[in-house]
Amino acid sequence: MSKKIELAIYFPDLHRLEMIDDFLKIIDAREIPSYLATVMFSLNPNNYEFTNNLSSLSWLQLFQNNGMDFSRLYFGQEFCQNLIPPSDEVDHAYYFSRQMEWDFTYVTGGYLTDVGIAKVVENLTCLRELGADDCEVVVNDWGVLNVIHRDFPELKGRLVLGRLLNKQTRMNLFAQPGVNFPVHMNGIETVEQEIRDMQVQSYRDVSLSNPVYLKEVHEWGFTNVDFDMTPQGIYRPEGGWDMTMGLYYPWSFIATARNCPTAGLADPVRTFVMTDKPCGKMCKKYNCTPLLIQFETPAVQRGPTLFTYVGDFAEHYFLHSPYYERLIFEPCLPI
């Protein structure tokens, strides 16, 4: 941690931003008597969110003890266009960041229809009207990038390539320490371990390292790129793509969708397919998580997105990888 790393905090909506003190409150889980822990944190995967908040805060404390503190607010919704915060929330969040003397990053979502893009445009317009000349925008959708290039050219040079456009393979579900993940060897004469090693190496590599593509990414106005932490790590070449690199912690997503089992609690059809009916936003009240017992790394589903806690391997990034410039702390699941 010798290198200067920017610490950002990420909230998907105003309600949770307003609870920032609660989210950052540290309580020592080891101090809670087991009988209370049994009642509160029963073996329900939906509760991992809360227990893992406590674990991640202990790492945050370590960062803060080393002189780092939050200097940037990430705000916005990546995973569901029904939950994109309205412009008055963006307005409040921006002023909050000003009051805290933090920089501001507006996070836009992925897989947006034109309806979703229109909401993003409203928020970008709001930020322009607020005179947020230095605010960054995380781009997670090609349509949003098209709109920015056409209608918000001033954002060029302040764009962040988001984790939904930056397609990393997530090995998380097969990353049981000390156990080799299975490999399909049918018709292959290479030694199995060689294939496995080569696959891991391949999963570390990303399209951004392709110079033909990187040139375009620069021309599009991206100066930053955000990644999820993955067990296999990330191969970042010398020069670091000439971009600032951010890492989300402690939640990485593995997969996401528009169909949503949590929305399906109220309207089962939404579990599988998209409908034109408005969403009941059941995720505001419930978590609905699959019990994936065959996978070692516990997963938690919020809304349409399957997240995994990166605690088991984040330490490696923190202690041995001085190659990122920003840590984006997620005090809650960002949906």
Binding site: T169, R170, L173, F174, P182, I254, A255, T256, A257, L306
Partner: peptide, 11 residues
């Protein structure tokens, strides 16, 4: 999940 945003490994 959405094809383009499922980053799990198939085998």
């Amino acid at each position: 999940f959405n094809d383009e945003n499922c980053h799990s490994i198939h085998s």
